[in-house]
Amino acid sequence: MIDVKHLSKAFGDNLVLDNIDQHIYPGEKVVIIGPSGSGKSTFLRCLNLLETPTAGTITFDGAVVTDPKADIDKIRQQMGMVFQHFNLFPNMTVRKNITLAPVRTKLMGQAEADDTATALLKRVGLEEKADAYPAQLSGGQKQRIAIVRALAMKPKLMLFDEPTSALDPEMVGEVLEVMKELAQDGMTMVVVTHEMGFAREVGSRVLFMDEGHVMEEGKPEDIFSRPQNPRLQEFLSKVLH
């Protein structure tokens, strides 16, 4: 579904991603872990071109994302993204947050978008918040709305950039629950997270990144039970205890 070839990204002299090759298949739940500064968020943000790669090509469903002539808006409509800090639009109601993009991109009419929003909100248990403003919601509620907002575009793929890192501990569960349900429905997902439990339970493949490289990858049970790379061993010993 996504093909990444020789992907490099530098901020000035600082090489954040170094020649990464990856392929993400439909239905996969790829979980990316690693210490901060390892380049995992940058990798995720390169996939929908929020960061422009310095070198390499990314192909999504046959379309070359990194081609300057590519219609990036069309491609992004098919890739949902959830941010660490939610990034809800504070000047709109929850309903408007969700329906703005589908309506403006002519994916659906206002009525259909409203119905979709209601249905999705019901799914995450927040249908009574449709007319609230983001400032009135808790962190966990905001992140669930953000997921709904991305889903309303009916994406083929969902990108999660540390979706629970900015949440109070008691709200992490409700967001992970929504993500698990989404995974069970068969959504293709790429998740950058520090939640090792989620990685182990939901991930179909885990990537360990450090210093701009994918140091080790494999099934969750292999990564967590039989880590090979000494860096991964060190990392796991820190986060699991």
């Binding site: 929908n48 929020l50 808006d73 069309k74 491609i75 992004r76 409509q77 098919q78 890739m79 949902g80 993204m81 941010f83 800090h85 990034n87 809800l88 639009f89 703005l100 993009a101 403006r104 991109t105 907002r149 991305a150 575009m153």
Partner: peptide
Amino acid sequence: DPGQMEAGRSLGL
């Protein structure tokens, strides 16, 4: 917050 622009663009707007 640049996240606002990113959120809009990531939705395909």
